[in-house]
Design a protein around this nucleic acid. Structure first.
Length: 224
DNA sequence: AACTCGGGGCA
DNA sequence: TGCCCAGAGTT
């Protein structure tokens, strides 16, 4: 039989809670939000948000959704047409192609609706595990944790996950963080990851959770 | 596993 | 001014 992810100790859960309340205190404005009014609009916004900020995406979608709002409308566009409307976020040519193809699939295979399971979402062009989890969590209220490069790196450094794979990190964080805090925790990890806990040179002296971080302790022991 | 896309954020 | 990506697809 299949082994489930082992239940974390209460001490581990408590430590995770400490870390996130610190981050919450340090970055009260770290949580941004993509603006949308339908599940399809959120799906579009999340696809656009790869390698781009939410603010950047909101600027684009504010205009975009006034022209096109439904998968039926997106499905009629050529990639070049749409590219012109989403210019301003990174990787826009790829995303444009993906959005048109995804819209066609939604119309042809899902009656124009956004599927609510991860397997179906991940079959859509431009939608990987991280994007699928954001959609499931934000619009369908499902228990997921979107793991991007920052989340993966920080969870490992902070001792919240073994860091073996993004999938494992996702399981570990889901077990450690109460469902209602997942979205906020996600944004705070990203914010912290960009400004303090870099991939290359983490600024441990400036870090608000350095006393709770096994990595910071290790790197601090070598010098004195 | 390494490469590509691309405008923005940040030093 | 230049580096590095708030990812996912392709080779």
């Amino acid at each position: 039989m299949k082994r489930k992810n082992p239940q974390p100790s209460s001490a581990a859960v408590r430590r995770a809670g400490q870390i996130f309340s610190r981050l919450e205190e340090a970055y009260p404005d770290a949580v941004t939000a993509l603006s949308y009014s339908t599940p399809f609009e959120l799906l579009v916004a999340v696809i656009l948000s790869a390698q781009s900020t939410d603010q950047q995406v909101n600027k684009i979608t504010e205009k975009l959704f006034k022209k096109y709002r439904t998968p039926q409308e997106f499905a009629l566009l050529t990639a070049d047409q749409l590219a012109n409307d989403i210019k301003g976020c990174g990787l826009f040519r790829n995303k444009s192609k993906h959005l048109v193809e995804t819209s066609r699939i939604l119309v042809e295979q899902y009656g124009g609706e956004v599927p609510q399971d991860r397997e179906s979402l991940m079959l859509l062009p431009g939608v990987g595990r991280k994007t699928a989890n954001v959609v499931l969590g934000v619009v369908f209220g499902q228990a997921t944790f979107p793991v991007d490069t920052h989340v993966h790196r920080l969870a490992h450094r902070l001792g919240l996950s073994s860091g073996k794979s993004p999938e494992q990190t996702e399981l570990d964080l889901c077990a450690l963080i109460p469902p209602e805090q997942w979205q906020r925790a996600h944004h705070q990890l990203i914010y912290h990851g960009r400004r303090v806990c870099d991939a290359r040179k983490p600024k441990c002296p400036d870090c608000c959770v350095n006393d709770l971080c096994p990595s910071a302790k290790r790197s601090g022991e070598g010098n004195s």
